[in-house]
Design a protein around this nucleic acid. Structure first.
Length: 469
RNA sequence: GGCGACGUGGCGAAGAGGCCUAACGCGGGGGUCUGCAAAACCCUUAUUCGUCGGUUCGAAUCCGACCGUCGCCUCCA
């Protein structure tokens, strides 16, 4: 089996064939750090994380680049409103973004480039577009991309460039354009705004150019995968393609992958609509990061995901089912010969998991294989039909799959002295058949988020997956 | 107005011509196990896949119309 991914540009689902065999280069359109990201934003970042984790699981080397856009209109406005510099504002929210990402168990990209650290590359790109006749300068020192010079414009978004003239809405501050459809590569200097002195003049980057500059700087003029939310298809990615390919003359991205929106109340979650939830708020309210991660990840990335009051409890229950098996496998002790049919079962689980994810990251199919395996393993544990070594092998497989999913409780979870004392006291109380005392201790542990279970393998404990409510 | 996606059980969701009298997760009901629990397991919970037509020996899966939802066309993950 090979990994097949759907490409937005061609509309085709094709086998992944990295430009450099065995090495996949991935660029993810990261956040503009003008404020805290919401969980809708994180859905698309978690999708990229799933992709990268799976590619690595499949033995591919991955270079993952995710930008942080740290200069734009909103950052300038936000900084002005607070009376701080754009650098201070951007730093604050970049830090916050990384904290949220870490909280959700996202892997850290190899490179987290910032727009303001790529000004020379951006200016160089604009210079090349100018030389190629694709860019022109206006009186205020801005540079625009001339869409008329790029016949392929509109292909990604399937928009007819001619038709775009009709519903034109002219931005008041960009009246110098030759054509309303042209987009800004570089914005001329304005009083009170940060600007850089470059060979193409004073000013600051437009919105789209920094992603072209950063992706090509770190991944080369052509690379394998570019991800982002569907709302970036137009104009952001359309513009990226135009300016990148016009500048280099080479195909920019092999596979464009776009994540559908997270919805709340039936509508796209968006700051402007006010229907947002934030990672830090949810975690502070006691939501398990693993439950949140699962809730945002467990639906295919190209399907809209409706976030409701039931999302978190359902996700937490599923995660807990996975945890409970892992805990049972860890506690399992049985001195008997290995189950000769276990390897086939484990192979079947792995095969189902891979078949699902190979198919354009079909997470539902992959999870179905995992949970089929969970049921069968639980059965064998209940039957005591596997050996202790078998249990360890099964746990090994689940841990391996979880390197992709990132939902399991840590393997080595230390209880800490206070909990250890309570757990040991309960074991003693039960041994002495002091049920009232043992039940009291169970309640006390429950109040600390610990579930205890009495099994043939002794008392077992695990942390409850919470949902904040 | 243009372009596009989608409508499967109480909820989420896979399936894209026969293996579907439809996975998987959550929830509900009944049971087994347990000191009681929990976890787990077993049984059960859609003869049906938005509606109406059509193609086919055969359709949730293909075609058409209609209804509905959402998105993009503007900042946006």
């Amino acid at each position: 089996m090979t990994i097949r991914l759907q490409d937005t540009l061609s509309g085709e689902t094709r086998p992944l064939e990295p430009l450099e065999p065995g090495h996949v280069r991935v660029y993810t359109c990261g956040p503009t750090v003008y404020g805290p990201a919401h969980i809708g934003n994180f859905r698309s970042f978690l999708f990229a994380d799933l992709l990268v984790r799976y590619l690595r699981y499949r033995g591919l080397r991955v270079t993952w680049v995710m930008n942080l856009t740290d200069i734009d209109d909103k950052i300038i406005r936000g900084a002005a409103a607070e009376g701080i510099t754009t650098v201070e504002l951007a730093d604050r929210y970049a830090e916050r973004f990384l904290a949220d990402a870490a909280g959700l168990g996202m892997s850290r990209p190899e490179v987290l480039p910032r727009a303001t650290e790529h000004i020379p590359q951006i200016a160089d790109l604009v210079g090349r577009l100018r030389d190629g006749g694709h860019a022109y300068r206006t009186d205020d020192g801005s540079w625009f991309f001339r869409i008329a010079s790029w016949p392929a414009y509109g292909r990604l978004a399937r928009l007819d460039p001619e038709a775009m003239r009709v519903g034109e809405r002219v931005e008041s501050d960009e009246y110098g354009k030759d054509d309303v459809r042209d987009f800004a590569l570089w914005k001329g200097p304005k009083p009170g705004e940060p600007s850089w002195d470059t060979p193409i003049g004073h000013g600051r980057p437009g919105w789209h150019i920094e992603c072209s500059a950063m992706s090509m700087t770190h991944l080369g003029p052509s690379f394998d995968i570019h991800t982002g939310g569907v709302d970036l298809v137009f104009p952001h990615h359309e513009d990226e393609i135009a300016q990148s390919e016009a500048a280099t003359g080479q195909p920019f991205v092999r596979t464009w992958m776009h994540c559908a929106h997270l919805r709340l109340g039936g509508e796209k979650m968006a700051k402007s609509r006010g229907n947002i939830e934030r990672v830090a708020d949810l975690l502070a309210a006691g939501v398990s990061p693993r439950a949140l991660r699962y809730a945002l990840m467990a639906v295919h990335y190209r399907a809209p995901l409706n976030y409701t009051d039931e999302s978190l409890p359902a996700a937490a229950a599923a995660v807990e089912r996975f945890d409970a098996l892992l805990a049972a496998l860890a506690a399992y002790r049985e001195d008997r010969p290995d189950d000769p049919t276990l390897p086939a079962l484990l192979a079947e689980i792995r095969a189902g998991f891979e078949a699902g994810l190979d198919d354009d990251l079909n997470i539902s199919a992959a999870m179905a294989a995992v949970f089929d395996g969970v049921r069968e393993l639980n059965r064998r544990l209940a039957d005591r039909s596997v050996s202790g070594a078998d249990a360890a092998r099964a746990a090994g497989l689940l841990r391996e799959l979880d390197a992709v999913l990132g939902i399991a409780a840590p393997a080595a979870d230390e209880a800490g002295p206070e909990l250890v004392a309570l757990l040991e006291a309960r074991v003693a109380a039960r041994a002495a058949r002091q049920w009232t005392e043992s039940d009291r201790l169970r309640d006390e542990l429950a109040a600390r988020g610990i579930a205890v279970e009495d099994t043939r393998d002794g008392q077992r404990w695990r942390r409850v997956v919470t949902t904040g409510g």
